[in-house]
Amino acid sequence: MTGVAESAVPQWFAELFAHRRWIRRVEPFPHIYARDVFVPEFYRRLAEELARVRRERPEAFGSVAADYGAVGAQLAGLRDGPLALFLSREWHDLIARVAGVATTGDVEGSVHHHPPGSPRGWPHNDLNPAWFKGPAPGPDQVTTVDPEVDLKSGARSPEVFARETVRAVAVLFYFGNPDWQPGDGGETALFDQLGANPIPALTIPPMDNSLLLFECTPRSWHTFVGGNAAARNSVVMWLHRPKEDVVRRWGGDSIAQWH
């Protein structure tokens, strides 16, 4: 098991967590799962903020990807409330330390909303390139997606400097899904192999105040199960690593290019 080491983080940050024991699993690929991540009061604030943004700022939610059932609101535009935690350096460093991955300080993330009856996704590994504007962030900073640089292609004006990274750690935090029960659908499926009709080796339920995180590798195949009886909400985010680290470890062909 793993968790939040109190000596490694500020007291205000450590006090947000309900416990310090997160489960490390090795099958079907290494990942970490945690229930009751935050103390009830802070979780309540997160859920209320989701409801407020959905109610007052529906224009913040746009299509996540073609043929994908969710809409999403960028975390970078939601920094005026408790969701700002997910863009903090403290959160970044905790996730990187738990995952055991050296990361750059670059963070990409959104609040995803799957309406009831959303279609199933497709298995993918998240080992995708991502471009960020400007120099690498300092040890107490994070860099987020900038509209001047296309995250997927790096397209930008000639005077704008950008760096290419690769997604290193994926995090899904489930919230705003009260009373979820087995059979309601909307889980995250994990696979140990792919084929014409891959069968999930494990499914992660979207239970409130729970978390799934894993290193993005050539074999970290996962997808949204779909068929959800009620709306499914989550924070979906990624930490990043230098491209050369991926090339050195798995080869350049391992990077899943955007289409």
Rank of each mutant, 00 (worst) to 15 (best):
M1C: 05
E6D: 07
S7N: 07
A14P: 10
E27Y: 13
I32F: 09
F42K: 06
Y43V: 06
Y43T: 06
Y43I: 07
E48N: 13
E48R: 11
R55K: 13
E56Q: 14
P58S: 08
E59T: 04
A60P: 00
F61H: 04
A66M: 07
Y68H: 13
G72P: 01
L83T: 07
S88K: 05
L94F: 06
A96G: 13
R97E: 15
G105N: 05
E108N: 12
S110N: 12
H113K: 00
F132Q: 02
T144S: 08
V145C: 03
D146N: 11
V149T: 08
V160Y: 01
V169C: 14
V171H: 14
N177C: 09
N177E: 12
E187I: 00
T188S: 10
D192H: 12
D192F: 03
Q193P: 00
Q193E: 13
P198H: 10
P198L: 06
P200S: 12
P205A: 09
P206L: 02
S210K: 02
S220E: 08
T223G: 04
A229Q: 15
N233Q: 06
L239E: 03
L239R: 04
P242C: 01
D245V: 01
R248V: 00
W250P: 09
D253I: 05
D253H: 11
Q257F: 03
